[in-house]
Structures are given as C-alpha cells and as structure tokens.
Design a protein around this nucleic acid. Structure first.
Lengths: 155, 155
DNA sequence: GGTAATATAGTCAGTGAAGGTCAAAGAGGG
DNA sequence: CCCTCTTTGACCTTCACTGACTATATTACC
C-alpha cells in the first residue's frame, strides 16, 4: 500500500479493530499531522473508503473541540444487500409519485420497513414541490410537520 | 467532554436529573465561577443546549438576587399537537437544521417516535438543498434513497 | 418616596479553532 | 496519450469563547 490514502485507511482500520466497540474518536488535524498531509486528505479517505456501502458511519463536529467519529457497523448481510440494491436503483433515477409510493408499499410488504416508517416516507415524497422556491429552513419545517402529522394518526 | 460548553451542559443536566421536579434554580455568576469562565458563556450554553426544541424552558431574573431557572418539560401527544398547530399556523417560520434535528431528537426521547423513525426524519430534513434545481422526480428518488440508506445503519 | 449605588443577567460582535468543499494539479497504469 | 485515482490548497461554514456594553432588579441613603 504505497499511497497515502491507503496508509491512512489501514491506520484507521487498525484503530477500529483495536477498539472494543468498533468506534474511534479523533481529530482531523491530528491525523493529518501524523501523516504529514493536508487535512482535506482525511476527507478524501473517509469519503472513498469509509462509506455507508462499506458499512461505516462517520460523524463529525466543527469548531473548537471538533472531532471525527468513525464507526464500523455490523449489519445483517442479506437485508443490507437487498436495501442497497434498492437504493442504488433509485439514486438519480426518475421516479414518479406513483412509482415512489408503490415502492414504499413494497418495502412495507417485504417487512424491510414498518408501516409507520412507510407512512413517513410517503408523507415526505408526496409533499408538493412548489415549496422548492422557499428558503431551506421553511422546507425543513414543512417536511417535519408533514411527517409528524402522519405519525399522529398512528400513535 | 473536553469542551467547556459540553462540561457545563453535562453539569446542568446532572443537576436536573437529580432534581425531583426536573427544575433547578441557580445563579449565572456562581456557575461561571465554578467553571472559571465569563458569565456570558453560560448564556451560550443555555441558548445552544437548553432550547425549547430540546424540551427545556429557561427563565431568569436580573438585578440583586437574580437567578436562572431551568426546567425540563415532558412531551406528550397533546404537546405535539400543539406544536404542530403552532408550526402550521406559522408557515414560513425559520427552522435551522440544528433546531430541526434537536426537535426530532426530542420526539425520540419522548418515545413518540422510534429511533429508526427519527433517523428517517433526520435523513430527509438534512438533505442538501442544491437538489432544488433538479426535477421533482429526481428529488423524490434522492429522498427515498437517503431514507433507506439511513435505515441500513439500523438493521 | 425618590434617587443613587450596587448587583445581577442579556446581547452582540469579534476572534480563533476546528472540520467541509471543490476544483485543479499530479501520478500511474493501460 | 488518456483515464482514473490521489493529493493539494484556497476558500467556506460551523462552533466555542470572550469582553465590552446594555438592561433590569434590589438596596441604601437622603
């Protein structure tokens, strides 16, 4: 593994392996210093090697006392594969409202998501899109409100 | 918790947990002295950690004998309905990503939604908004994909 | 009672310390 | 030579913390 990205990947994987709970907590800056590279190199490694598809979850925080938290998730292989295929079939794909709700239906039937979760998904994907011109904050509020509203019928 | 703000947050939360009625009464100045920081640091902690979105209510009084009173409010179905009405009556209210996720977090804590459902909500409300220029169908696919991706971490 | 002094708490803008993004240059393999 | 993966650095956003200034109670004194 002669390249930098590979070395950093290996290093992180070893830390993870040595961690009792398969999770590590570190600082981007320090890691970069350890490898004598620019900090953004760490982002490159994380975004190419520690992806959800590979079963990793990366969380972070900016500002003073900022950090990176990397977790290795242990997943039920079959279900993951199913969902992953579904997910990949969706990204960037054109999807009419009808098809989208059909799809959610199938997820529920296959017991990959609960009925309530299905309701949530439908609530969001069926939101009217005229909201696209609104400010981001407003859209967020609308989505939250819609999701909660749907769940309220189920509580 | 290496941050000052984090330490203060923890300290207050412990006081609250130890309090029989989930309410505490203290002085800003004394708290600041306890942590050897400027008093306004306490305001910072209160305004970022003990917000209504997280279910806290902070009251205060200035002048001699001034104080801070911090309460943790419990959230039930009726409260959600109220909040929802409030939100819907205020369509166009700003809602930062931070506040939105805080609120979802609170819903989960109050057991009004499951952890998975909370993850779904967060997945959608945190979607980057550059997608606003994309066609409606694509946005739908992205939302679904994002929701599924998040569920993957939970299987 | 009115007013000045004192004792609190609130606000806000500035500074510094993280991490994030993106585009362009570099390196290697077919 | 071309394509892909890697590496870098300039610029951006978020978070933490501070201190000067402001606002509001209470207390003391006349």
């Amino acid at each position: 593994m002669s390249n930098l990205a590979g070395s950093i990947e290996l290093y992180i994987r070893r830390l993870l392996a040595a961690s009792p709970n398969a999770a590590i907590h570190l600082q981007r800056k320090e890691l970069a210093e350890h490898f004598a590279c620019v900090p953004s190199q760490i982002n490159y490694v994380l975004s190419t090697r520690f992806t959800p598809e590979r079963g990793y979850l990366v969380e972070s925080r900016r500002g003073g006392g900022g950090y990176l938290r990397i977790r290795k998730l242990d997943l039920n292989r079959d279900k993951v594969l199913q969902l992953l295929e579904l997910r990949q079939s969706l990204t960037g794909q054109n999807l009419s409202l009808q098809k989208a709700t059909d799809f959610v239906c199938r997820l529920v039937e296959a017991r990959l998501v609960t009925r309530r979760e299905g309701l949530l998904m439908n609530a969001v994907i069926s939101l009217e899109q005229q909201k696209r011109d609104d400010a981001l904050e407003i859209v967020r509020g609308l989505m939250l409100a819609r999701m909660i509203e749907v769940l309220l019928h189920e509580i």
